[in-house]
Design a protein around this nucleic acid. Structure first.
Length: 504
RNA sequence: GGCCCGUUCGUCUAGGGGUUAGGACGCCAGAUUUUCAUUCUGGAAACACGGGUUCGAUUCCCGUACGGGCUACCA
């Protein structure tokens, strides 16, 4: 097998979509599984769609997900440049080669003329059926063409699709796929501005960059015959990559592929990270800022259309690399399920070591104006609450009371059953606490229970009030653990505060 | 419309000529946790339809239906 080289070739037009990240992931896993290289190539051939910051955003996404390209516009590599706009001069040569071999032709039709034609003819296709009615080097005389060219009349170069040929190939996921060339139109290869279209650019760059396997979304399947023919006409057939067209990620409710708008509408992220449109200033929320762990995000994406044949669902990147194979990717599109995505995240948080969570939790706390000064304390808090967090952002509601006194106490939860005996109990608890030389959960629990017995109050009647005092509400880890962690003084303060409040 | 791709619980999927069609998410019930979550146990829930092929099809073939993609000088 030749050296495996794959590429992810996004167009920098905005935020990186779930499906895009999954395409990168499958490329990456395949490459690393085979000890090959993963290339990032920017397909910025459409200047009208260029969006400021999109390229940087894409690279940051890859970085966050841990999908590091071996070659890229910033990392460089043996096949520079990796931005198609910077490769512009290279494409003309190949287009001309096709021209002289009769596999392509000049077309001078203006966009307006094409629009008119499309309106006039219901199923207009620039190809077999209508190319002879258009203004191109097939219908013009050589002299005319030469004259047009010399005059600088805007023109494109189109591929000349052959008639009545069946072109087929073996897709690594779908098996044999075939097309009738008569039904495929004469795609534009080189635009009037001298830039190649995707069709020419992928083929030329995949060849030049020695790409061994080309993986992309299923939406590219219909244009595969154009690419196959180009490989053939350019004389590179022997080096053509193997293809795999990945199934699409669909909207949760069924109809259509997932788009950014679905996220806004249904209330879940579609982009990997927050994306702010530089023109409108609109913010689209991403998985990262919502509180997803990159490992969980990657894991979830990998399972959307792939499995290893066992019942394992939680995989580390190394395991994915070890087990991934394109043949086990399913053919059908998958509807995105945000509930399952959250489950992956919760699993990852639970299974993560405290050290792995530290930085991210610290960030969440900082967003809530908490500066962590004692790392040991933070670690203990994380250990205590991580099992109850689904998103990293949950660490705030689940642990805020470890860092500041609860803003509000849910007194209504205990008030109806409150009485003077309970006040006395807690007052005595306070003096007992103050006198005790030890401060830990077990001793405290013991003192608490002994005292309850002395006062003839059921422990159960006292636990909830104690929790409300410390936490503010009916949630959180074991009360005595909380008390032990926040400290003797703080515990006393909170008890006192509650007592004055409840006895008002 | 044309072309291409697809179709197993609500969702993600395993499986594959003879299975009680397996798992996970979600949902429901119970247990544990003197809060909540976690955890554990159990439950409901699927082979789109019609023809073949076959002793036997959910599995193979052909149709139909349905879903999706493409049909730009966008990628």
């Amino acid at each position: 097998m030749k050296k495996v080289r794959v590429r992810f070739a996004p167009s920098p037009t905005g935020g990186l979509h779930l499906g895009g990240v999954r395409t990168v992931l499958f490329n990456y896993l395949f490459a690393k599984h085979h000890g090959g290289e993963f290339v990032l190539r920017i397909e910025d051939t459409d200047q009208t769609r260029y969006v400021e910051g999109a390229e940087e955003y894409i690279m940051e996404c890859l970085d966050w997900c841990g999908l590091k390209p071996d070659e890229s516009p910033v990392a460089g590599g043996p096949f520079v440049p990796y931005r198609q706009s910077e490769r512009k001069p290279m494409y003309l040569e190949y287009a001309e080669k096709l021209l002289s071999a009769g596999h392509a032709y000049y077309a001078f039709d203006t966009p307006e003329q094409l629009d008119a034609k499309r309106k006039e003819i219901p199923n207009f296709q620039y190809g077999q059926a209508f190319r002879n009615e258009m203004v191109n080097s097939l219908t013009l005389t050589d002299v005319e063409v030469k004259e047009y060219l010399e005059r600088g009349v805007p023109h494109v170069i189109r591929i000349k699709m052959p008639a009545n040929e069946t072109i087929s190939f073996t897709d690594m996921i779908r098996g044999e796929v075939s097309f009738d060339t008569t039904l495929v139109d004469d795609k534009v290869l080189l635009k009037a501005d001298g830039m190649p279209t995707y069709h020419l650019a992928v083929v030329v760059d995949d060849y030049l960059m020695k790409i061994s396997h080309a993986f992309r979304g299923e939406e590219w399947l219909p244009s595969a015959p154009v690419h196959l023919l180009l490989w053939k006409y350019l004389g590179w057939e022997a080096e053509m990559p193997e293809w795999a067209h990945l199934p699409l990620i669909l909207k949760p409710e069924g109809n259509g592929k997932l788009s950014k708008r679905d996220g806004d509408r249904l209330g879940f992220p579609v982009y990997a990270m927050n994306w702010t449109d530089p023109k409108t200033g609109d913010l689209t929320r991403g998985f990262r800022e919502l509180g997803f762990l990159p490992q969980a995000f990657v894991n979830m994406l990998a399972m959307l259309g792939w499995n290893d044949g066992t019942e394992q669902e939680i995989f580390t990147m190394d395991e994915l690399i070890e087990k991934f194979s394109m043949e086990r990717v399913s053919k059908a599109g998958a509807k995105f399920d945000f509930e399952k995505a959250k489950w992956f995240n919760a699993e990852w948080i639970k299974r993560s070591e405290v050290e792995g969570l530290r930085l991210m939790v610290e960030e969440v706390l900082e967003k809530n104006s908490i500066t962590v000064t004692d790392q040991d304390y933070l670690d203990k808090v994380i250990a205590l609450v991580k099992d109850r967090c689904v998103l990293l952002t949950d660490f705030w509601p689940q642990a805020s009371f470890f860092f500041r006194r609860p803003a509000e106490l849910d007194i209504s939860a205990v008030k109806p059953k409150w009485n003077d005996d309970k006040t006395t109990f807690f007052e005595h608890l306070l003096t007992k606490i103050a006198a005790s030389p030890n401060w830990n959960a077990t001793d405290l629990e013991n003192d608490f229970k002994v005292l309850a017995e002395e006062k003839a109050i059921k422990v159960g009647e006292l636990m909830l009030p104690f929790r409300i005092m410390l936490v503010g509400g009916k949630f959180g880890p074991a009360v005595f653990d909380i008390a032990a962690l926040i400290g003797k003084e703080e515990t006393a303060e909170r008890v006192n505060k509650f007592l004055t409040l409840v006895n008002e």
